[in-house]
């Protein structure tokens, strides 16, 4: 008896499905909507996306607001204005983590078998989950812009700047969700994905999300300088604090692209592994 590798039709067909999103758009949309409903109906998934970052934002702006007066702190209107991008980053990263947890729960309870047994591209299943995560990123960015505006933060880049920041946050949420999905598919364990929660915070604190890189001390400073999430944070922050900057935007997009490639690549690999091992 000879063993089987994953059939070529499945591999190529699946990749085509991912690339030609329109062909599976209805499935991606349906699964994305399910993902959003699932998050809103399960408070433990919603809390890290909105509640925790909002509380942290309130504590930091309330307790460390005078940090803007430190020598070397970038010129900003207020600490709240500076912190909005960090809060959005925290929210989207936890949205990606929550998306991974939800996918792992689906695997644990066998729901993904229902999806895998349907005649659709199996990559559409992952894309549906990422679409849901992107929508949560969009929701989070709107939420924090609303909070910022209510509490007096100015958006230096105006409406175009806000839209750019919102777009970057939305796309980054999907990119980070890809990594969460990959871990979920590989491990099939919600507790493992949940265990990454502290790591998300470490990655954030070792970036420019909550504090300017120039004021950090070594080795955090060097790590933050090369942390791809610092580039994304700056891409999101710049339109808020000083206006749209093409270089910052390009660097952010490059970092997002890198995370997308890693996330989707790992997801595809984990998906194939899951189909091999069952």
């Amino acid at each position: 008896m000879e063993g089987h590798s994953l059939p070529r039709s499945e591999v190529v067909g699946g990749a085509k499905g991912a690339l030609h999103l329109r062909a599976n758009a209805r499935v991606v949309r349906a699964l994305g909507l399910r993902s959003i409903r699932q998050t809103f109906r399960r408070p433990q998934l919603m809390a890290p996306i909105v509640v925790f970052p909002t509380i942290l934002l309130a504590i930091q702006t309330g307790g460390a607001g005078s940090a803007v007066e430190l020598p070397g702190f970038p010129p900003v209107q207020s600490f709240l204005q500076f912190m909005l991008a960090g809060a959005m980053m925290q929210s989207l990263m936890l949205a990606g983590n929550s998306g991974g947890i939800a996918l792992a729960v689906d695997i644990e309870m066998g729901f993904t078998d229902r999806l895998f047994a349907a005649p659709i591209s199996r990559y559409a299943i992952v894309l549906g989950r990422l679409a849901g995560t992107a929508a949560l990123g969009l929701f989070a960015s709107l939420w924090f812009f609303a909070i910022g505006l209510v509490f007096g933060a100015e958006i230096a880049g105006g409406v175009p700047g806000a839209l750019l920041s919102i777009a970057l946050v939305t796309v980054t949420a999907a990119a980070v969700g890809g990594i969460g999905a990959a871990i979920a598919l590989r491990t099939g364990s919600a507790s493992v994905v949940q265990g990454l929660f502290p790591l998300v915070l470490v990655v954030l604190f070792l970036s420019s999300a909550f504090f300017p890189v120039g004021l950090m001390i070594e080795p955090a400073k060097t790590i933050a300088e090369y942390n791809p999430f610092s580039f994304i944070v700056e891409g999101v922050r710049e339109p808020i604090v000083s206006g749209v900057d093409a270089t910052e935007t390009a660097e952010a997009l490059l970092a997002i692209a890198g995370i997308v490639v890693i996330g989707l690549g790992l997801s595809a690999r984990a998906l194939r592994h899951r189909l091999r091992v069952g």
């Binding site: 499935v27 699964l31 309870m109």
Partner: peptide, 28 residues
């Protein structure tokens, strides 16, 4: 094929109608 696997793999947060409609979408 239609598949009903062991231990009814259902999402407890969905309604019955949502589940059947999702299944219909999955099957085009």
């Amino acid at each position: 094929i239609g598949v009903a696997l062991q231990e009814a793999a259902l999402d407890p947060l969905m309604t019955g109608r949502e589940l059947i409609r999702l299944q219909a979408t999955l099957h085009g």
